[in-house]
């Protein structure tokens, strides 16, 4: 278990009540499970499909590299990593 920084955007930010947090975990999936219950409101339903996969409109990056939403259980994190979670935005 290592501590990493998680940054969230747009609607996630509004629901969680923060834009940045530090969480502990071994894989990206573990971190996202913790993220979902770490804010003002529980965003599990917003973040995950019923089968537990990360909803496919969210983009995940670990240290600025894009991740595959279906493989988050396999991606191990190391201390100091930065995970970003963001959806596309469309305002203009």
């Amino acid at each position: 278990m290592v501590k990493i920084t998680v940054m969230v955007y747009t609607t996630l930010r509004a629901r969680l009540g923060f834009s940045r947090t530090e969480l502990e975990g071994g894989t990206v999936h573990e971190l996202l499970l913790k993220l979902a219950v770490s804010g003002m409101t529980d965003i599990s339903k917003m973040l995950f499909e019923d089968d537990g996969a990360v909803r496919n409109h969210f983009v995940l990056t670990l240290n600025s590299e894009l991740l595959d939403n279906r493989k988050t259980k396999k991606v191990k994190v190391k201390a100091g990593d930065i995970l970003h979670v963001f959806p596309p935005v469309s305002g203009g």
């Binding site: 609607t11 496919n56 959806p87 596309p88």
Partner: peptide, 20 residues
């Protein structure tokens, strides 16, 4: 980058002038 559209949001997109 964005293979899937997010669910449609209710209401308008927040848009403070300096951002666009």
């Amino acid at each position: 980058v964005f293979p899937h559209m997010p669910p449609r949001l209710k209401g308008y997109t927040p848009a403070p002038g300096p951002a666009p």
